[in-house]
Nucleic acid binder design. Structure first.
Lengths: 347, 347
DNA sequence: CTGTTAGCGCATTCAA
DNA sequence: TTGAATGCGCTAACAG
């Protein structure tokens, strides 16, 4: 009550309760082999002192730290924030703390964040690798001695399980859908082309175009709004302008919506639009925007569940080394040219 | 290289380097009073083993933990995610890890998250209190013995500094703006009315209405879309329907946009709209939505800076016990009835 | 059922 | 400039 700075220790609790530290420890850890009376005394001492176990000491003893690390590109990004929340829910259910660190999709930041995380001796790690080919990270993971699960992106040569979504297939199906609408000149607008998920989506697009015998049209330039605007305007003024756009991430999609609005290009009559990754007002805009919807929470949740399964030593899981692949969902609204909104769930 | 599970320790390094642990320790910590040759030997041993200092052991020795805790209602929420990112940036700049835990705005979860955080013996704490009147939390903070800064909401009786935004004043000004447009029956749509920030906004609204001699019209019901839809429809069908709506958080604002779209109520001609808290496509919707824009990153950043200032013992700060209040910004677009968009910055 | 004790990895004495 | 010894708070093993 009156104490302020130095946090109370177990031995203070024990002293106040008039018992040995071992006994106090047993009470703190669930109270097996402790008599009811002792239990009460110790508990009230804990209350009185406001005792909280010192995590560092537990770590030092070498047991479970009840901590897992989460390494994501960004925490402000809706996608990863939602994954993080889903993972956190699972972690809490296992009475463990999720520590988040960010990579900004840069291998350097990734390694340094990882180091900082490792200081806390997490029981396991959840990682969205910046680069699936990163040998250094793969080696680190292999030698870390703790279970690691990657999600959203794989990590080749790491030997750890991963949970992905079918970017390739979803992009292929989405493109195919545009093709079924009769569009021939489908522009694929790419930013951050170095990212694994984006590359997969480009592959899916290319595959679909090839299947249909259409000329692919990939624009890998427009990183910011201004550039995208200029680039899009140029495409539209070209001799053979595109009749549809497939954007590969939701910020690109909103950017295109804004740009087309400014340019007064009607959607979909002049230019159809289909985006990868849903966003909050996609269904409310005029026209509503058709998108590929990712199983965001599922990714985070499944990855976390897998990690805890491995932590609890389910050996069956050990054998599964192929990634778990979750399906994306094509949500058809108006911007692709569809007239009817099939389900109103997303309203 | 070949070792996998148990992380190498300082004494292994020392042994490999053929020196004592004390010497190795000195090398790790900057290498004062170490000969060049010894230095080299130890460093290469560190390299060889992939040694990383055990954070727990250092903590146990009683030094700084280079860790600060962040306690927010949610991590998936854009507002808090952005605050968290801003705070994280500051934390990293101070070489410390930000550990995030969530409260879901519930005092119970808040205390338990706080306990888990405290096990990690953070050097300081950043808190968005669920309830500013929470005596238990205030007492905890007072006795914690570490610097605490709250942001977005105060914590009365805790004696700690806080960084707020001027919810009251911004809501008042926003309402006044609607009043200047000539609207008389301005509906204030409230959800989560128990939250401090929301209450402040309601106060601002009421104050403005009173100043103007108008009858306030507060609806504190609609927690979800379905309810909101019904409630809004009822208001519009009533004998004296509102001519403007002031929504107090951005999810309400988008909800209203969607509902009015479905109801085919034109904005702003039949019903004007002004929302608290900006959102990504607010400027792109038709009509674009006028909003109060909060200094989101500033809140997180300033709070973190204040915390580190206190950690570094700047005593000048100690004396400032009144909260730092950051200004919100009224961004006028079309939905309130404004014809011109004053600045195109937010496009 | 309970008390005592060793030792986790490290920084920091203190002696050499 | 260096090595050895101490103790941080805790849990697990063991002795009572």
């Amino acid at each position: 009550m009156r104490k302020s700075n130095p946090q109370p220790t177990l031995s203070e609790v024990a002293r106040l309760a008039g018992v040995g530290v071992g006994t106090a420890s047993r009470v703190v850890n669930g109270g097996v082999n402790v008599s009811a009376g002792t239990m009460r005394k110790v508990k009230s001492a804990i209350q009185e002192l406001g005792y909280m176990p010192n995590h560092a000491a537990r770590v030092l003893k070498g047991g479970r730290t009840k901590t897992v690390g989460l390494l994501v590109p960004s925490i402000a990004d809706h996608f990863f924030a939602s994954c993080a929340e889903a993972a956190d829910k699972i972690a809490r259910a296992h009475d463990t703390l999720l520590i988040v660190a960010v990579t900004r999709n840069q291998c350097g930041d990734e390694m340094s964040s990882l180091e900082v995380l490792m200081r806390h001796r997490p029981d396991g790690l959840l990682i969205v690798p910046s680069d699936p080919e990163n040998k250094e990270l793969a080696r680190f993971v292999r030698n870390s001695g703790i279970p690691v699960v990657t999600f959203d992106r794989p990590l080749f040569g790491s030997g750890c399980s991963s949970v992905l979504s079918d970017n390739f297939e979803a992009a292929r199906k989405a493109t195919l859908h545009l093709i079924e609408h009769g569009y021939k000149r489908i522009l694929c607008l790419v930013s951050e082309p170095e990212l694994y998920t984006i590359r997969e989506r480009v592959r899916g697009y290319l595959q679909a175009m090839e299947e249909a015998g259409l000329q692919p049209l990939v624009d890998t330039g427009p990183e910011d709004m201004a550039l995208a605007s200029r680039s899009l305007a140029a495409h539209l003024k070209s001799r053979r302008p595109p009749d549809a756009v497939f954007t590969l991430k939701n910020s690109s999609t909103s950017a295109v919506v804004q740009i087309l609005r400014q340019l007064r290009i009607p959607i979909p009559s002049r230019l159809a639009l289909l985006g990868f990754d849903d966003f909050e007002l996609a269904g409310t805009l005029h026209p509503s925007i058709s998108v590929v919807q990712q199983p965001i929470e599922d990714l985070g949740r499944t990855a976390a569940e897998l990690l805890f399964a491995e932590l609890e030593g389910h050996p069956s899981k050990k054998t599964r080394r192929e990634p778990i692949v979750l399906a994306n969902r094509l949500v058809l609204r108006r911007s692709c040219g569809c007239k009817e909104v099939p389900a109103r769930k997303d309203l």
